[in-house]
Design a binder for these strands. Structure first.
Length: 564
RNA sequence: UGGGGCGUAGCCAAGCGGUAAGGCAGCGGGUUUUGAUCCCGUCAUGCGAAGGUUCGAAUCCUUCCGCCCCAGCCA
């Protein structure tokens, strides 16, 4: 009874997407015994939010349908790849909350098999060594509207092809001088079928296989066959590979592979005000526009992790945006919502004054320190309470005091009352200024007996502001982040995405004051600094006794909206 | 102008011939010792456009329009 109701509710809340429909149908009709997917990154850069969508999809489908998902490094181009990236990718996938089936796989694990399948194609008269160089090959390929011309070497004998391919393998031929091509159709309207290159000479060491090979298979030749070797049933990739599907199927049909995997495509993630292209992200790193791949402003998994985004929030985001075949541009506001949603529920609360203004409580006894207690979270009693030392001098934020203000301003105003969160109601009497006319201190009074209750005289405080004890607190730096780009589609305007970089994406505040309960804060835990936002310790910049906090994201701020 | 895809609200996205789900954003209101959270309400006579079929069309047919991808020995 309950189950039926719950299932019905779940169904109404979250309809299935087309990949789920395909998997369910294939399982029901017995087309596959179980589902096997794979996440196939090339280790040539760090994973970003777009990869998170693919990871959640591939691992998520395996999990939902009781199947398996492999992690396979698609390492067919040693020139661009490195072990640093494979380590980072493993770390990121794990952090996101997924576990791959069995051992890590590498396409390079299959180089021997792939090589013998290439020979199989040659023997079947379906592949040949072509002597055209890259420029010539381009000319022979034709254009989008004109068919290509056959290579002069297209009808070489099997024996000659075998001998030549062996020479390629043995390193006897120069890089670029020739290649192994599949013999399909130079007049095919789909350019991918115009005798695609399946093996090329690259005399470079490989991060996994060392100097064993000087020829490497192309993506097209390696991917589907690797899927077949691993028993992948559903090879899920992005839309730009759609035109490659006929080629994927051609190889599977013409080679003695152990299984017949199928390729399905979905739309990659586009996020506004964000760049999700490994090439561009690498450029930001290499040209020093950011601190590194894990800079908190980067949309990389490692950057978001350092920023304080949680695995749960990212998974939820990927769940919410859906999986379709239509190009879309998701609003970053959706991501921000997911981050706030998770953090609001789970982040312990604390107080931190970002821009300190000294407040002296003239009627409070000199030297007296009260140990007040505050909840760890307003809606959860399972999070530990914390102790707040309260004394004669406190810091509040400069933004929270005005000499005069209209009724909409719900903070401290001269002659008016405000509540110090988790503490007393106070009333401001005087603003002390320096020679430049800047307010450097506020003299105020504590209204007695106002811990947990309103003032006895019936004059209620206008609002609630946060504060930190001047006697006991921790000095820290705060790093505030804003979007890295000012344009919705960076570079769409003049073609150069670097021109769209937001010069104010990082703002550092020195000398902020955070409450003492954060003495042992760890980088992995995110706190809500009440009324300000969510923050976490930055492991790169923090030093012993000199913590630095990253603002993960601000709180929603309707005041900022109405006051502008 | 070849081939392959995609068009449902500002942004995602259900819907698959029976009279437009849900979420984000926005707007209005309530609760609140965070201007947060939470709660309530509101937000497409309309589904890229025009014709057609049908008692009935976002769903079927025709034509048109727009956008994306493909001419690496990258993936």
């Amino acid at each position: 009874m309950t189950e039926i109701t719950e299932n019905a509710a779940v169904k109404a809340e979250k309809p299935s997407h087309f990949i789920q429909n395909i998997l369910r149908t294939d399982l029901e009709e017995g087309n596959v015994a179980s589902v096997v997917t794979r996440f196939p990154p090339e280790p040539n850069g760090y994973l970003h939010i777009g990869h998170a969508k693919s990871i959640c999809l591939n691992f998520g489908m395996a999990k939902q349908f009781g199947g398996a998902c492999n992690l396979r490094f698609d390492d067919t181009n040693p020139e661009k790849e490195s072990d640093e990236y494979v380590e980072a990718i493993k770390r990121d996938v794990t952090w996101l909350g997924f576990a791959w089936d069995g051992e890590i796989r590498f396409t390079s694990d299959y180089f021997d098999q792939l090589h013998s399948w290439a020979i199989e194609l040659i023997k079947a008269g379906k592949a040949y060594v072509c002597d055209l160089n890259a420029d010539q090959a381009r000319e022979y390929r034709g254009t989008l509207t004109q068919p290509g011309k056959n290579s002069p070497n297209r009808d070489r004998s099997v024996d000659e092809n075998l001998a030549l391919f062996e020479q390629m393998r043995a390193g006897e031929l120069e890089e670029g001088s020739c290649s192994l091509r599949a013999k399909i159709d130079m007049a095919a309207p789909n350019i991918n079928l115009r005798d695609p290159i399946i093996y090329r000479i690259k005399k470079v060491d490989h991060h996994q296989t060392g100097d064993k090979w000087c020829i490497y298979p192309s993506y097209d030749f390696a991917h589907g066959q690797s899927d077949a070797i691993e028993g992948v049933t559903h090879s899920i990739c992005t839309l730009e590979f759609e035109d490659h599907r006929p080629l994927y199927e051609w190889f599977i049909a013409n080679i003695s592979v152990p299984a017949k995997p199928k390729q399905y495509e979905f739309a990659r993630l586009n996020l506004n005000y964000t760049v999700t292209s490994k090439r561009k992200l690498r450029q930001l790193v290499e040209e020093g526009h950011v601190e590194g791949w894990d800079d908190p402003r980067m949309p990389t998994i490692s950057g978001m992790r350092r920023r304080g985004y949680t695995p749960e929030s990212l998974r939820n985001f990927c769940e919410r945006i859906g999986v379709t075949r239509s190009d879309s541009m998701v609003d970053v506001g959706m991501l921000e919502y997911c981050v706030r949603d998770d953090l609001d529920k789970n982040a312990p609360r604390a107080m931190c004054v970002l821009r300190p203004l000294k407040v002296t409580l003239t009627n409070y006894p000199e030297g007296k320190i009260e140990r007040l207690v505050a909840a760890g979270h307003p809606n959860r009693d399972d999070l530990a309470e914390r102790e707040l030392p309260f004394g004669k001098t406190v810091f509040i934020d400069v933004e929270d005091f005005r000499e005069e203000a209209n009724k909409k301003y719900k903070r401290l105003v001269l002659g008016k009352r405000v509540r110090l969160r988790n503490a007393y109601v106070i009333e401001a009497d005087e603003a002390i200024k320096n020679d430049a006319g800047e307010i450097i201190e506020v003299k105020a009074r504590v209204i007695e007996n106002t811990i947990g209750v309103d003032p006895e005289d019936g004059v209620k405080p206008k609002g609630v502001i946060h504060w930190v004890s001047a006697d006991e607190h921790i000095e820290c730096d705060i790093r505030l982040y804003d979007r890295l780009f000012n344009e919705e589609v960076p570079g769409a305007a003049d073609g150069d995405f670097l021109q769209a970089i937001n010069p104010d994406s990082l703002q550092i505040l020195r000398g902020a004051k955070v409450e003492v309960s954060l003495r042992d804060a760890q980088p992995a835990s995110v706190y809500q600094f009440e009324r300000e936002g969510y923050f976490c310790l930055d492991e790169q910049h923090s030093k012993e006794g000199a913590p630095v906090f990253n603002r993960t994201i601000s709180l929603r701020d309707s005041w900022a909206k109405m006051s502008q």
